[in-house]
Nucleic acid binder design. Structure first.
Lengths: 340, 340
DNA sequence: CTGAAAGCGCTTACAG
DNA sequence: CTGAAAGCGCTTACAG
């Protein structure tokens, strides 16, 4: 089946030039005359030849590969579909820049740092899903110390010249969506989402939420802040805890859409109407958010832009160029679950 | 920052053996004495050495890499979260077998076949999301002819010795879930999902559905079969078309959960109760299916097993071993949207 | 069990 | 603008 492999020497023989010239022509080197280059490229195409990546990478001491590490808390835990959108965008962007994309799902227990760096598997690394900074700290420091370029999504940690990060305007957008609820007349708020120094995205959203309440002199009760990771089940349980706590409640700000969807299910199961009795808002704007009933009011993160930025930052870092972290704009998606 | 690279020669010098012995020891060759092997492995660890993959791959003419191609209809179209689960499982399985995983999102217009094969980027390919066999036919034939091992999810196309496929018991499970609805007393059915020779999964599900109806002598009307791809919006529109058609309707069998979620939203928007007025069932058991209200009755596909099988088949194919296509068992997840 | 040597298929100074 | 040559870091016959 498989015919013997075509190498640059075969092309050279056919074109009547040296192997070096073939190599140059295929890399669009200006050193080769236009006529020779065209001829060589034509022959290469005819013979179905493509450069052997292993050889070129070995020789050029590069990998032309970007790695994407998706960190998950536990093996086989459900991953937020939000990351699928980013992954898709990253894959397109990487391909557009001529890079291969290596994808790994990692648990934080594993020591991926040394592995990736020394095995020359990728020129740089993108980290998604790092929510618990403390657990990752040692690995991040080691990564930075090794000089491996990397970019983080959602965590504002960066070492100039080595790493960068891309995140979105978490605090500001949470302030906006909470203010929207206040304007609608809601006064008894709760926030669902685990916050800590270790979980920066949710923490920033929480701060924006608190800030909006404070600006309107609305009191908050620590009991109205329930920790939850981004999963429907945790949103569901959080609402049960909230209702068990008693007291008036007319709006729940959730740190993610998945949490909000679980929260809405719990409210419904308790016979409460959304938004009639309790308004609910989420964060992410997953595709499904348009199709829950009531449709979910949420904050849209531009995953297409996020993926592109991640790749651009990483490529600049690899090239030794200056990179400044990016905070991407978001947009409020007002639908029915907030009451308007 | 980055120190000069450690090579097997450095290890050899330190261990006082030849470079060949280092190479053998690190590959656990039985040719090396246990004592020497242990010592070399210890030194390698101390020096933070890992084999340079580009060099070893070039030399051994292999890639130790598996490619996963996710085919999408249009650039940036939403991808079914179902594939995220499979992707996660594939990533774990590939890592477990010592393979890297290259991920690409492809449109069918692109000619990925030659690319992958000739560029020595992967030892084998997994194809997900090929729903339209006709469009891919030429590429599949070319792939098979090139001798590149590949495995397809969901499409029963295979060339013994070169390719295989993994799918699930689509027809049988659709028959079961439809029968369940019939037992519940539903008599006026519709099916939403695009079927054609080109879309085997949905087609098999449709056949199972028709079969169940026929077994119970329930009449079907071609107008009650609406084509739809796996997306909430298409499910939504399909229900509008169904309702516009008029006539009694008390159960909708959807070819995917995404379609079902869109369908439920449309019914709700028309003031119809699910399952009171119309029962709805889906397919896939996405995590969200437990949290729609009513919770969605659906068919669970074991994505963890699916990913593992895909990788196992591919690795066997690469090793030249015999592989028989797999049809995985599924399970009915009875929740509320069916009326029991 | 170990070593010396060849060679995988490229890229890239160096020389012309 | 082109060629001859070195060498990236391994793996693996071959010889002992």
């Amino acid at each position: 089946m498989k015919s013997t492999k075509t190498t640059s020497l075969d092309i050279a023989a056919r074109a009547g030039v040296s192997q070096s010239t073939v190599s140059r022509a295929l890399r669009d080197s200006p050193q080769v005359s236009a006529a020779t280059r065209r001829q060589i490229q034509r022959i290469a195409k005819e013979m179905g030849y493509t450069v052997d990546r292993n050889a070129s990478r070995l020789r050029a001491q590069t990998t032309s590969t970007l790695a994407l590490l998706l960190c998950e808390d536990e093996p086989e835990s459900h991953i937020n579909p939000f990351f699928l959108s980013i992954l898709s965008s990253v894959a397109h962007a990487a391909a557009g820049h001529g890079y291969d994309l290596l994808v790994t799902f990692q648990q934080l227990s594993e020591n991926w740092v040394q592995d990736f760096q020394d095995a020359h598997r990728a020129d740089g690394i993108m980290l998604l899903g790092i929510r618990d900074r403390e657990s990752y700290d040692a690995q991040l420091i080691a990564l930075a110390a090794s000089g491996t370029p990397f970019v983080i999504w959602g965590l504002d940690y960066h070492v100039p010249g080595v790493s960068s990060y891309v995140t979105c305007q978490n605090e500001q957008s949470a302030r906006e969506i909470t203010t929207h609820l206040i304007r609608l007349g809601h006064r008894h708020f709760a926030f669902v989402g685990r916050t800590s120094a270790a979980n920066p995205e949710f923490t920033h959203r929480y701060h924006g939420y608190l800030d909006a309440l404070a600006s309107h002199a609305i009191a908050t009760d620590p009991g109205r802040h329930i920790a939850a990771n981004s999963a429907e089940a945790e949103g569901y349980d959080a609402v049960e805890a909230l209702l068990a706590g008693g007291g008036p409640l007319d709006a729940i700000v959730c740190a993610s859409d998945l949490i909000a969807i679980g929260a809405m299910a719990a409210l419904r199961d308790r016979g409460l109407d959304v938004p009639g009795d309790v308004a609910v808002v989420g964060y992410d704007d997953l595709p499904i958010a348009q199709y829950t009933r009531p449709a979910l009011t949420t904050v849209r993160q531009d995953t297409e832009l996020a993926g592109r930025k991640l790749v651009e930052h990483l490529i600049r870092l690899i090239a030794g160029q200056v990179v400044l972290p990016d905070e991407l704009p978001v947009s409020l998606m007002i639908r029915q679950s907030c009451g308007a």
